Computed example of a mutant assay.
Amino acid sequence: MSRSLRRGALAATAIVISIASLSACGAGNDAQTLGIRPDNAAVTVEDVQIQNALVITQPDPGAVGPAVVSATVFNNGLTRQTLDSITLPGAAGPVKLKAAEGDGPVVVPAGGSVVIGGKGNASATIEGGLREAKNGDSQKLVFKLSKTGDVGIAAFVVPAHSYFKDFGPSEVPAPPATAPTATATTTPSGTATPSGEATHAAGH
């Protein structure tokens, strides 16, 4: 493993601690006063702050299937915003956003936050997976919010293993089916006579 990949793996492992903390209490009343400092890079544009951004790929290397974006989006303003899109270069398909409940937009409440990724949270699915980025790489993401506009951040790319399993793609390709084995056919009794017996019978 190269030095850069080792650094990426170590940093990504540290990120999950922040993810777990924010998932558990990000929407609580004391979320702003806990003083949590993320172990990964964060970005702030106007009233919006994005932390713990990750691109989580299929658990098996080389598997073809969707990837997901995981992040926490904070809105420190007085007006609610909606997350209108997430885009990234190198994706094989669009990023499909889905709110935690219902069919409406992903809403970031005023003075609150929304967690993307994980059971019971909003989701952002890269339907065609990634075309270029590899595990351990840094991937540029652009979050487009209704009031703030584009907010860019660099996210680590990690597989859905270990700590990241519960935040990874919910759709995992099934293993290839085993090819059926050939079965021998039994010749009905009396329809063929072994050549040795036929020769013996002819001699008599």
Rank of each mutant, 00 (worst) to 15 (best):
A192N: 09
T191E: 13
P194T: 08
A174P: 04
G152M: 08
G152K: 13
A182R: 13
A177T: 09
H161K: 14
V158D: 03
A201E: 09
T199E: 11
T181Q: 14
A160S: 07
V172K: 04
K165F: 04
A174F: 02
S195V: 15
E171A: 13
P176E: 05
K165P: 01
S162D: 12
A198F: 12
V151M: 04
P159N: 06
S170V: 15
V158N: 04
S162M: 10
A177R: 13
S162I: 10
H161Y: 04
A177E: 13
A179N: 03
E197Y: 13
A177K: 15
V151E: 01
T191V: 15
A198V: 14
P169C: 03
A160H: 02
A184M: 08
F156N: 09
A201Q: 11
Y163V: 01
G190W: 01
F156V: 03
G168C: 02
A192E: 14
T191H: 03
P180G: 03
S170W: 10
F156P: 00
P175A: 03
T187P: 00
I153Y: 06
A174G: 01
G152I: 05
E171D: 12
T186N: 04
T181M: 11
A198K: 12
P188H: 00
P169G: 03
T191P: 00
T199H: 09
P188C: 04
A184E: 08
S170A: 13
A177L: 10
A198H: 07
V158F: 11
A179D: 06
T185N: 07
V172I: 10
T185I: 03
A154H: 09
V157P: 00
T193G: 00
A179M: 13
G152Y: 05
G168K: 01
E197K: 12
T187K: 05
E197H: 08
A154S: 13
P169E: 04
H161N: 14
T178M: 14
T181K: 15
S189F: 11
T178S: 13
G190N: 09
G196M: 07
H200E: 12
D150F: 07
D150C: 04
A201S: 08
F167Y: 15
F164Q: 08
T187Y: 06
P159F: 06
A177G: 09
T178C: 01
G190A: 07
Y163E: 09
T185R: 11
S195A: 14
T199N: 08
T183L: 12
S162K: 07
T199A: 14
S162A: 15
A174I: 04
T193L: 15
A160E: 00
P176V: 05
T183H: 10
A198R: 14
A201V: 09
H200D: 10
P180V: 13
H161S: 12
G168I: 03
V157N: 00
A174S: 10
A154Q: 12
T187H: 02
G190L: 03
